[in-house]
Nucleic acid binder design. Sequence first.
RNA 1: UCCUCGAUAGCUCAAUGGUAGAGCACCCGGCUGUUAACCGGGUGGUUGCUGGUUCGAGUCCAGCUCGGGGAGCCA
Length: 463
Amino acid sequence: MDFTTVKQLYRQTQSYLGQRVRVGGWVRTVRDVKTFAFIELNDGSFFKNLQVVVDEALSNFAEVVKLGVGSAIIVEGVVVDSPGAKQPFELKAEFVTVEGTCPTDYPLQKKRHSFEFLRSIAHLRPRTNTFSAVFRVRSLAAYAIHRFFQERGFVYVHTPIITGSDCEGAGAMFRVTTLDPDDPPRTPDGKTDFNKDFFGKATNLTVSGQLEGETYAMAFRNIYTFGPTFRAENSNTPRHAAEFWMIEPEMAFADLNDNMVLAEDMLKYLINYVMENAPEEMEFFNNFIDNTLFDRLQNIVNSEFARITYTEAVELLQKSGQSFEYPVAWGCDLQTEHERYLTEQVFKKPVFVIDYPKEIKAFYMRQNDDGKTVAAMDLLVPGVGEIIGGSQREERLDRLEARMKELGLAREDYWWYLDTRKYGGTKHAGFGLGFERAIMYITGMTNIRDVIPFPRTVRMAEF
RNA sequence: UCCUCGAUAGCUCAAUGGUAGAGCACCCGGCUGUUAACCGGGUGGUUGCUGGUUCGAGUCCAGCUCGGGGAGCCA
């Protein structure tokens, strides 16, 4: 007999009532009285458990009622109406096969565990309610991202994980090398000779696929990347990981306004998709993780995102009467407390902040006519902070080269990037969305370590 | 990297400088519809590590390790 999934039983209950089925899953808890018992079984296909009823007529009844939490079993039986209030149906067991017992030192119990403890058993935590919900939502969200872009004709580009340009400017990088760290080959002046390395040059893990993405936007018009990204920063916060996933769309013949429209549409699409396709999981998050979640997400889906220029934001903050730990001054980057005030107190919804001073933004951002600002955008959301960073790109070769010269960037390191401006360049724009930050925002989870299966953070690469 | 809080049973947590405890888990017993089942009994400790103060340290002090939160960096 083929396996029936618990999801099928919940979604098509009527067609299964009275039918014999076979279900395989893991024991979440056993409640027994003298002559019968209830087993909560989770088979991974669905957030909710299946209640299995076993009684002493079962040949291995004594063995079954002693099964520990976490045991793997296969149950054959008949689906029947349940007299209990908390489930619409149950499985009356005729045969129970014990696939794998679970000894008493199993760390997971039928009670609440702290997220900190569960991080120490990252190989077992997907078996808990919260992580079952988080990682099913993560999977659905990844699919939703692809659907959103594919429906709009965006081409999915696989930009390289290993990059030879150590000058992408987005932060500290992880070196990739096959050289012996204890005895590397040396150049005559005593430095490590990366010419002898695997690629014949120094290479690193990518911090962004943007520069490569731009080259494909100049061929396919609209593209997106979705892949792992690595930052070797010594960041110790609930919002940073050394390895995370980033989505980076890039559009040709597009400006900053098109960019904001895309970002807003994408976030709304993502939320709607997850709400529709993971209702049980989202209900759980709203009930047990963050009871303002539904209000917040509804507010996002139903409202227009606010827009404000950096200059307006600075004036607004200065006039707010709020006492900030860091004073607000034009030319300084907005501090977290400023960003939070804007999105949580002033607008109470996502807000795009645009047109930042060029000094605090990357070299490739398009210079505005005022000579002081660039066409950058950060999307700030309540609770999480910066979730998207993007810009219209500087497409004018002379302006781009001039800016690079000001910043001391070597032209020859970027020769292929500059070629995109030289050969048929056009205005274009794009952004980066931190996938984990989006998952945090959608689920209400507050630590990035709890929305990525095996998180890599400072001093943490177990599993 | 800086600031701050913390580390006690397998887990979640108590314990005024004076005999280390509870709930859950686990073991034994009871219970004919349970819902993190319930009721009774029992097992379970190098109080993160090293040193110091004290008649006496889980508690006070110093250093270290690990973890949480905040900041910076950013997505």
